[in-house]
């Protein structure tokens, strides 16, 4: 099969904007209040596809601990989850299950494409490749792309912050470039650690 030919049903469809009705009660402070709460409790669905899922597990455990930002409640049921971390290679066999899980999640829902495979197919993008979906954005709308092969747990945390920033327009936590690096000042190696890093203490 030639690489340019796609199988039936996997053509890249034109992205259409969903029709969103204006809310009945549209008060700015109230919306902001709910948005803050949404941003502060992003519950991911227990869903891993490949090796990036190991990093997802790592980010929920000691050292990195996504629980600090209230996002450690991995819900097994899609009905109770907010965030779908697509961690790993999406094979064409897995694609229907992924789309079904996405459709089962109730409305304020976010998708994070973790790792190069989920972003673009990564190392599996070559001629005569037949089994891999090249980018999960062919299947579901993606909010945040986290590059890496696999991404570091810090990068996944940064992806969660990006989703929070997308919900709110505000970033609560300091940006990595704002934090003085301990390597820049060799005399004071312990000076000004990351707020998130120091939280472990």
């Amino acid at each position: 099969m030639a690489a340019t030919e796609r199988e039936e049903g996997t053509e890249r469809k034109p992205i259409t904007k969903a029709e969103i009705l204006p809310p009945i009660i549209n008060l700015k402070p109230l919306n902001f209040f709910f948005d803050v709460n949404r941003a502060m409790s992003i519950w991911p669905i227990t869903f891993g596809l490949a090796c990036c899922a190991i990093e997802m597990m790592s980010v929920s455990m000691a050292r990195f601990d996504i629980a600090r930002f209230g996002a450690e409640v991995f819900r097994p049921s899609a009905r109770q989850a907010d965030l779908m971390m697509v961690t790993g290679t999406v094979s064409k066999k897995m694609a229907p299950a992924l789309v079904r899980l996405y459709e089962q999640m109730p409305a304020p829902k976010y998708v994070m494409a973790c790792g190069n495979c989920a972003i673009s197919g990564g190392p599996f993008k070559f001629e005569n490749q037949y089994g891999i979906v090249e980018g999960v954005d062919n299947l579901v709308p993606v909010d945040v792309y986290v590059p890496g092969c696999p991404p570091r747990p810090e990068a996944i945390l940064e992806g969660v912050f990006a989703i929070q920033e997308k919900i709110l327009g505000i970033r609560f936590w300091p940006r990595p470039e704002e934090i003085p690096s301990p390597l820049a000042e060799p005399k004071k190696p312990k000076a000004a650690p990351d707020k998130a890093e120091s939280a472990k203490a």
Binding site: S41, M61, A62, A67, F69, G70, F172, A199, K200
Partner: peptide, 9 residues
């Protein structure tokens, strides 16, 4: 599990 748990919110 030797991690801080909810901390920043």
């Amino acid at each position: 599990q030797r991690r801080p748990g909810p901390y920043e919110v």
